[in-house]
Amino acid sequence: MISFSVNRQGVNLDVDPSTPLLWVLRDNLGLTGTKYGCGMAQCGACTVHLNGEAVRSCVAPVSRAAGKEVTTIEGLSPDMSHPLQRAWIAEDVPQCGYCQSGQLMSAAVLLRENPRPSDDDIDQAMTGNICRCGTYPRIRKAIHRAAGLMSTGGAK
C-alpha cells in the first residue's frame, strides 16, 4: 500500500511501487489531465507538483510520492482562477492543447518562486517543456501577463 495525497485528497493504493507516478495518476486515479509524451523526462508533458516542486511524473516511481502531496493540473485551481489560467485564455495559448497541462504546471512553480520572471528566467524554467504546435511565443507572453495579474492583486 502506498499512501499520498493528490489535489488535497488522500489516496491509498495497492500498486507496484516502481510504476511511474504518471501512470498511477492516469490509469489508477483517472486523472488524465497529466499527459504522456516521451516517458524519459524529455518533454515535460507529464509535469506535476510533488510537495510543490515540478517533477516529471513519467520517470518518478510512485514510491517517491509516498507520504507526500501531489498536485496535478486538475488541482491547479478549483475554478480556473489561477492567474496562469486566466492569462492562458487571454493570450489564446493552446493549439492542440496536449502539452499545456505540463506547461502550466512548470510555469506555476516558476511564478511562485519568481513573481516577476525575465525572459531568461522563462527560458530556464520552461525549456524542459516541448510544445510541438509551437505555442512558445504565447506561453512567454502569458507568463508575463500572469505575473502582472499577480502583482496587481489578481492572485488569490
Binding site: 486538475e74 485551481s77 480556473m80 489564446d92 493552446p94
Partner: peptide, 29 residues
C-alpha cells in the same frame, strides 16, 4: 475578428479528452 478560442478552458484544466484519455467500462490497455 480575433475571437478567443472556444476550446481553451478545457485545455487548461485537464478536462479535454484526447484519444489517449478515453476510458470505457471494462476497457483494458
Amino acid at each position: 475578428t480575433p475571437v478567443k478560442r472556444l476550446d481553451t478552458p478545457e485545455k487548461i484544466n485537464g478536462k479535454a479528452v484526447f484519444g489517449i484519455d478515453v476510458k470505457n467500462p471494462g476497457m483494458l490497455t
